[in-house]
């Protein structure tokens, strides 16, 4: 379970970009986080593993995010960063995938086995031994997600996981994620993916929580979405393409 209670954040020297955010995500729940550019989605996610120090109270599985608990919380939380270039730091995809598990005590063999099964699940076993600086943007995105999945976190936080993916990889990602019985918060502009994956959605605007409820209801509410800089998902707008 993840709890946010009156969470606020301001970047050093700036005005608040998150204000009074309160909600709870129960175990195994998949929640979409939507909002226009600059709404505060990435900022909110970064507060959970303590990459940014928020005001208010954030808890993960009953542990409060604080200096004492941070190592334990980070162990439970997998985080897919918005920019995959910053997520991958080892020479090869496979090196990156075993980095986390081995740090947490797996043997190399276990870690590689685990990595291989994740790669197969995502349909990208061919990326295993490729060099990170020689794969495409979308491939890198898939690989970055794979590195996080390979750690088998209890909680997954994902910032724009589907951006720059082609339709097939996007579908593979959605299938993989929907098959996982984990707590997830997915920040995305891909409202159709949110609609597919997350029964519940949270709408942010200018750092405040605007709506929290059933995805089908909120993402169908044209007026609500448009007044906060979003549009109906394609699959609900009755249009095929733009």
């Amino acid at each position: 379970m993840i709890g946010f209670e009156n969470v606020g954040y301001a970047y050093p020297g700036g005005s608040p970009v998150l204000d009074g955010i309160t909600f709870e995500v129960s175990d195994g729940e998949k929640v979409g986080l939507v909002g226009a550019n600059g709404a505060g989605k990435s900022t909110l996610l970064k507060c959970v593993p303590g990459l940014l120090e928020a005001s208010g109270i954030i808890t993960v599985s009953g542990l409060r995010v604080s200096r004492e608990n941070i190592a334990e919380i980070r162990r439970k939380v997998g985080f897919v960063l918005q920019d995959p270039d910053n997520q991958m730091f080892m020479p090869k995809v496979i090196d990156d995938m075993i980095f986390g598990p081995v740090n947490y005590g797996s043997t190399r063999e276990e870690a590689e086995e685990q990595a291989d099964s994740v790669l197969r699940g995502l349909g990208i076993p061919h990326l295993r031994d490729r060099y990170n600086h020689r794969i495409s943007g979308g491939e890198k995105r898939m690989a970055a997600i794979a590195t996080v999945l390979a750690m088998r976190p209890d909680v997954m936080l994902m910032d724009e996981p589907s951006s720059s993916l082609d339709p097939r990889n996007r579908r593979a990602l959605i299938n993989t994620l929907s098959g996982l019985d984990k707590t997830m918060i997915i920040a995305s502009h891909d409202l159709d993916m949110i609609l597919d994956l997350c029964p519940r959605v949270i709408l942010l605007d200018h750092g405040t929580l605007i709506a929290d409820g059933e995805t089908a209801g909120i993402l169908r509410d044209r007026e609500l979405l448009e007044s906060h800089g979003l549009e109906l998902p394609l699959s609900l707008s009755g249009q095929k393409g733009i």
Partner: peptide, 9 residues
């Protein structure tokens, strides 16, 4: 951050 999140200490 990415390293620390994956257990680098």
């Amino acid at each position: 951050d990415a390293m620390v999140l994956r257990g680098f200490n």
